[in-house]
Design a protein around this nucleic acid. Structure first.
Length: 566
RNA sequence: GAGCCUGUAGCGUAGUCUGGAUAACGCGGCAGCCUUCUAAGCUGUAGAUCGGGGGUUCAAAUCCCUCCAGGCUCACCA
């Protein structure tokens, strides 16, 4: 926020371009050492002096101006100290003026398409989907916040042999029953049943394949069953999406509608000599380091990537996106490299704006999740368990009395804890999920941030009277608790920017925890309502108010809902 | 065989892109703090040869090489 001033000052003293100066500026490891440091190493070669001496000389020559109060050499570093009163004034006034808009980007005309979580319709969602959804939703919100128009899309893998398996099991043993439980779970049960029965009866797989052939021919009965079961799946998914706090999808794509498409694009590419035909008649592309890839089978039918090529173009036609983000697990890294390369070969300009946001797998202490064997952490079960645990904690504390409020707060706290947990890892990391130990409500967790917000809000609520923030004496906010919190609040806009550029919600998790942590120290040590005098009280109230705006924004970007009390 | 990802206190992670000051945070230990705005909180303390080994550099968790361990992937599965 204030680095420009330092760059300007240094530029007058040394012959290094602004860009370079800015890039080496850093935040000292200890606040005692100042706010911004300029390491003088880069000058020592050119000036043939040791950096300590350079720092000393610069210290003599530079006269503090503006928000800079003091310049001090410390070894090879030249440390700049801000005038706390001045930067407090700038930051707090800025937040208070913009309120929930603080850190927001100006509305631009750019469109970002985010695809997630692309489930199969033969079984319910699991923990992996929750990680996917938490990431997809958060990234969507971050881009929206920065002024982009975000289109959330989902792709349903609604056809294929796996779907036919659950269909067959239902046909054989379902007795035409209607779901007596959450409908996607009902469907999933038949998928597991199929796997169990097929273990001792290989003929079942043949039957499922026969079912798939009938489906492809458009057999009325098979299609009707397929529709019925898929609708159960969708109904169940939608409940989970809602419970997990996803915003509505702008568009759903269905594999059944596109799985034969894309052929035309490939054949045109073949005509233009981009691809070749092998001796069997299959269309292939040689991508050098990425290897070869079949684009059309020898019988002329599409493979998976064929429809993905079609879908990529369809998305572009539908939304004219400036960026298209695929939230998909890291086992498909190679697939997306190939996809984007082929799109590029085909001459689609949007190819370079496609991004695969890949994330690591979640394993259980006993090993990988296997849905066929029912060895999964089910999404709904986990969400429900979190909500239950949250409710237990709420009742233990007894702050909330109203039953409706308890229910609503349990949901928000349980889901908030889960989301924070899933988002706090860098996406690329695999991790082991331990149901007993993984998610807690204390320490660096979602509820920690939520609780800190509740305390802040309570202060404002209790203060009752409206405060005139025009006549605040900012030098009263001079304790280390206050100053460090204010400085951190000032970082919010750049933090959001960084999170968007690197598709990294975990940066916001960490930031939210940092400000909550600083606020809690402030809360512990600096009474607001019982401050020693009225001016101090008002200044602190202003700080609390701005904190509420920033933390609320931060939580919203993570997809975490807030509560009034807890 | 090749490519990509991961390896940081007992445990879980951030920091690696863009090299800089005593490697940061949470959990768990240990020692404290509720007559004062909600203790889902706060304070203090112990705990790390940053997977191993080389190299580059004034300076390496960070860059390069190499080895080890785990995961994922490599043309008609999705």
């Amino acid at each position: 926020m204030f680095e420009d001033e330092i760059v300007k000052i240094l530029k007058n003293e040394i012959k290094v371009d602004a860009e370079k100066i800015r890039s080496v500026l850093e935040v000292p490891p200890d606040p005692e050492l100042g706010d911004i440091a300029f390491p003088c190493f880069i000058l020592s070669k050119e000036l043939k002096k040791n950096p300590n001496q350079i720092a000393k000389e610069l210290e003599q020559e530079i006269k503090p101006t503006g928000v800079i109060e003091r310049v001090q050499a410390c070894g090879p570093y030249l440390n700049f100290y801000f005038n706390n009163k001045k930067i407090s004034e700038v930051i707090l006034k800025e937040v208070l003026k913009k309120k929930e808009e603080y850190g927001k980007g100006k509305k631009n005309n750019k469109v970002v398409v985010v695809e997630f979580p692309a489930p199969n319709t033969n079984k319910p969602l699991h923990l992996g989907h929750l990680r996917n959804m938490a990431l997809g939703e958060s990234v969507s919100r971050i881009y929206e916040f920065l002024g982009y128009t975000v289109k959330r899309v989902n792709l349903y893998n609604d056809r294929g042999i796996h779907i036919c398996k659950s269909m067959l099991a239902y046909k054989k043993w379902g007795n035409n029953k209607k779901p007596n439980k959450k409908p996607d779970h009902f469907v999933g049960d038949y998928y597991v049943l199929f796997a169990r029965k097929a273990k001792n009866n290989p003929k079942l797989l043949e039957e499922a394949q026969e079912l798939l052939r009938k489906w492809e021919k458009g057999d009325n009965k098979v299609r009707a069953l397929w529709k019925k079961m898929n609708n159960w799946a969708y109904k169940g998914f939608n409940e989970t999406f809602k419970k997990f706090g996803l915003k509505k999808y702008d568009k759903n794509y269905y594999e059944s509608k596109i799985y034969t498409k894309g052929k035309k694009i490939i054949l045109e590419g073949l005509k233009r000599g981009l691809f070749e035909k092998d001796e069997t008649g299959a269309v292939i592309v040689d991508l050098d380091k990425l290897g070869k890839k079949i684009l059309l089978r020898s019988d002329g039918t599409s493979v998976y990537i064929t429809q993905d090529i079609y879908l990529a173009k369809k998305k572009f036609d539908d939304f004219k996106f400036d960026k298209s983000i695929y939230v998909v697990g890291n086992e498909q890294i190679h697939h997306f490299k190939v996809l984007f390369k082929v799109l590029d070969l085909l001459g689609f300009k949007f190819a370079k704006n496609c991004y695969h946001l890949s994330y690591g797998m979640i394993e259980l202490p006993e090993g990988k999740m296997k849905s066929r064997e029912g060895k999964v952490v089910d999404a709904d079960d986990l969400i429900d368990k979190m909500i239950e645990l949250a409710e237990k904690e709420i009742r233990k504390r007894g702050v909330i009395k109203d039953e409706e409020e308890i229910k609503s707060a349990s949901e928000r706290i349980g889901v908030g804890a889960l989301k924070y947990y899933l988002l706090s890892y860098s996406a690329s990391k695999n991790f082991v999920f331990n149901p007993e130990k993984s998610i807690s409500f204390e320490g660096e967790t979602g509820p920690y941030l939520m609780y800190s917000l509740v305390r802040a809000k309570k202060i404002i609520k209790k203060s009752k009277k409206r405060i005139d923030y025009k006549n605040i004496d900012f030098k009263l906010l001079n304790s280390k608790e206050e100053v460090s919190l204010i400085k951190k609040l000032g970082e919010f806009p750049e933090i959001v920017e960084k999170a968007s550029k690197t598709y990294s919600p975990h940066i916001l998790c960490e930031y939210g925890f940092n400000i909550a942590n600083l606020f809690n120290s402030f809360y512990e040590n600096k009474p607001v309502l019982n401050a020693s005098d009225e001016n101090t009280k008002n200044a602190r109230l202003m700080l609390v108010t701005t904190y509420i705006y920033v933390l609320t924004s931060c939580l919203t970007l993570l997809g975490i809902k807030t509560v009034k009390e807890m």
